[in-house]
Design a protein around this nucleic acid. Structure first.
Length: 459
RNA sequence: UCCCCGGUAGCUCAGUCGGUAGAGCGGGUGGCUGUUAACCACUAGGUCGGCGGUUCGAGCCCGUCCCGGGGAGCCA
């Protein structure tokens, strides 16, 4: 019977006749026997396998190198050596797939930069194995978090008609022959394209999910999102995953409360349920990680209006490269000052100037701010961006026109404000940025198996 | 897109003033009766990112291109 190494290592007693499949991490030889460290991905730890002259297949053992795939039948017994409680005494060893001498992964550490060039092999390292286990567990927990609170998961479209999405740079989707694009009056004739109009990959599921919010009450999306900005930073990718809850009969305070609750819940979840994998990151990647997570788990986030944040920055006595000024967006250095130096914890900044925020955000009574909020965390910056939505038909239509958009393009979005409109709010939580937060990994390209960034589409 | 740093063995890196290539790991061979990034001995392995230039001589200096990284910007 096939056993997972995870289950075997947690066994309360010795087990006879076990069967393990996995990959060899290292081999240590003595004259008449060898030890194999075998990992099957079920957990970070390897099982130590003793292979000796009595093992069927012992003649193969010298051909087994780091990276080789093996199957082992044997008995799980208490280990007489130090360092592990259980070991596998092999009765039969099979080499399923060998790994020749040019296998690129060595037993010592590699740089993340090198491992990115072999993204097809890096899941076989301890660190990336741990990362992708945490990623999967966290994604699953996000669904459970919402399910437990009565939210419905809505599948919003990946391909979208461009007009309603706002200003972000988008990837075109087309079946037109790019060598011979049909044109009318010098313009591309999208009428001949697959959808009969210009199509793009979505930059957000928000506008779509709002429609379901105004029926199902509490909803969320969780899926891939695409932005074609030429961003070359450690926190941006062209393809990333986003969680976007949307709450009906809710205002900005409810929104902030949900953003804080989910962040804290997921941090606690990883600390409790992914402890073994998390320990690797705390030991090798960020030695202050557990403090950071503890801090988030135990303390309320700071909340302050944008106007106060600008005031605080201006009076900080700090020389910033870009002077903080009301009406301008917070720079990276400003966000870092707030979360890393001043408050030393996550902070929610809200009520931003309307001119630096999106058209759909609810206008405040002061006439110059909107009910927007950003959750900022140390090192990473913005992890959540959201707002209360403008639920009033007239102000929304006016804002669309003011910004030079055609209200006709937003007809269905506006209709949701015409029929049974209610105050509602939501936000976008960057899944990869959340993973950076909980693991301490400083580059977003290392929290997803195959990162997509400008000029990088290998694998 | 801008600024800065880097590219030497399969991998991680060292290489002094410009004088002709080094270590550890990995691989191979041998040794070792319980190892833990096992250990010990021997050994193979190089277009020093590409092209051009300066020089008696370039891994090192200059130009240029490519690639990688960091920071910034862009980023509902």
């Amino acid at each position: 019977m096939l056993h997972s190494i995870h289950a075997l290592l947690r066994s309360a007693s010795a087990v006879g006749d076990v069967f393990v499949n996995g990959w060899v991490r290292t081999r240590r030889d003595s004259k008449d026997f060898s030890f194999l460290e075998v990992n099957d991905g079920s957990c970070l730890a390897n099982v130590q396998v003793l292979v000796d002259a009595g093992t069927e297949g012992y003649d193969l053992v010298k051909q087994i190198h780091t990276g080789a795939a093996v199957s082992i039948n044997g008995d799980l017994v208490e280990s007489p050596g130090k360092g592990q409680r259980w070991e596998l005494r092999a009765k039969r060893l099979q080499l399923v797939g060998d790994a020749p001498e040019d296998y690129p992964l060595q037993k010592k550490r590699h740089t993340d930069e090198f491992l990115r060039t072999i993204a097809h092999l890096r899941p076989r390292t301890n660190k990336y194995g741990a990362m992708f286990r945490i990623r999967a567990r966290l994604a699953n927990e996000i669904h459970r978090f919402f399910h437990d609170r009565g939210f419905y998961w809505i599948h919003t479209p990946i391909i979208t008609g461009a007009d309603c999405e706002g200003a972000g740079e988008m990837f075109h989707v087309t079946t037109l022959d790019l060598m011979n694009v049909p044109k009318t009056d010098g313009q591309v004739d999208f009428a001949q394209d697959f959808f009969g109009k210009e199509a793009n990959l979505t930059v957000s599921g928000q506008l779509s999910v709002e429609t379901c919010c105004l029926s199902l009450g509490k909803v969320y999306t969780f899926g891939p999102t695409f932005r074609s900005e030429n961003s070359n930073t450690s926190r941006h990718m062209a393809e990333f995953w986003m969680i976007e809850p949307e709450l009906a009969f809710a205002d900005l305070r409810d929104n902030m409360a949900l953003g804080e609750e989910i962040t804290r819940h997921l941090v606690r979840f990883v600390m409790e349920e992914c402890a073994e994998d998390l320990a690797l990151f705390a030991k090798y990647v960020d030695t202050t990680l557990m403090q950071t997570l503890q801090n988030i788990a135990e303390h309320d986030f700071v909340r302050l209006p944008y106007t106060e944040a600008i005031d605080l920055l201006a009076k900080s006595g700090r020389q910033f490269e870009f002077a903080p000024a009301w009406g301008k967006d917070l720079q990276s250095e400003h966000e870092r000052f707030l979360t890393e130096e001043h408050f030393k914890q996550p902070a929610i900044v809200y009520d931003y100037p309307k001119d630096i925020k999106a058209f759909y955000m609810r206008q405040n009574d002061d006439g110059r701010t909107v009910a927007a909020m950003d959750v900022l965390v140390p090192s990473i910056g913005e992890i959540i961006g959201g707002s209360q939505r403008e639920e009033r038909y007239e102000p929304l239509a006016r804002r669309i026109s003011e910004l030079g958009f055609d209200p006709a393009d937003y007809w269905w979005y506006l209709e949701t404000r015409k029929y049974g409109s209610v105050p509602h709010a939501g936000f976008g939580l960057g899944f990869e940025r959340l993973l950076m937060l909980v693991t301490g990994v400083p580059n977003i390209r290392d929290v997803i198996p195959f990162p997509r960034t400008p000029k990088h589409l290998e694998f």
